[in-house]
Amino acid sequence: MAKSVLVPEAKQGLARLKNEVASEIGVPFKDYNGDLSSRQCGSVGGEMVKRMVKEYESTI
């Protein structure tokens, strides 16, 4: 199954959020992230989801 972007405009915003979260929690994201642990990447992804859910809940 091929990946398809549902909202292309969101890609830049998600990248910005990822970099913001990574810098805040001390994960060194850069062009190549193959040397990061699954735990580090999961921490960034988990925090991103928390923030997106919080933002959504504040609008309803």
Rank of each mutant, 00 (worst) to 15 (best):
M1V: 13
M1E: 09
A2N: 11
K3W: 12
K3L: 11
S4P: 01
S4E: 13
V5G: 02
V5H: 08
V5R: 08
L6Y: 10
L6E: 10
L6K: 15
L6I: 15
L6T: 05
V7C: 00
V7E: 07
P8M: 13
P8Q: 12
E9T: 00
E9W: 13
E9L: 08
K11L: 11
K11R: 09
K11P: 00
Q12G: 03
G13N: 14
G13C: 10
G13M: 12
G13W: 12
L14I: 08
L14V: 10
L14A: 02
L14K: 09
A15R: 15
A15E: 14
R16A: 08
R16H: 08
K18W: 07
N19I: 02
N19Q: 12
E20Q: 15
V21I: 15
V21P: 00
A22L: 00
S23W: 04
S23E: 09
S23G: 01
S23I: 00
S23Q: 07
E24N: 03
E24T: 04
E24Q: 02
I25N: 14
P28A: 09
P28T: 06
P28L: 04
D31V: 06
D31P: 00
D31I: 07
Y32W: 10
N33I: 07
N33E: 08
N33G: 04
G34T: 03
D35Y: 11
D35A: 04
L36K: 12
L36C: 10
S38R: 12
S38M: 07
S38C: 06
S38Y: 09
R39N: 04
R39L: 05
R39G: 06
R39T: 08
R39A: 06
C41A: 14
C41Y: 10
G42R: 09
G42H: 14
G42L: 06
S43P: 01
V44A: 02
V44M: 04
V44E: 03
G45Q: 14
G45W: 08
G46A: 09
G46S: 05
G46N: 03
M48K: 05
M48G: 00
M48C: 01
V49W: 13
K50E: 00
K50H: 06
R51K: 11
R51N: 13
M52Y: 11
E55M: 11
Y56I: 05
Y56F: 14
Y56N: 03
E57A: 05
E57C: 05
E57G: 06
S58C: 05
S58Y: 14
S58D: 07
T59F: 11
T59V: 05
T59I: 07
T59P: 02
T59S: 13
T59Y: 14
I60N: 12
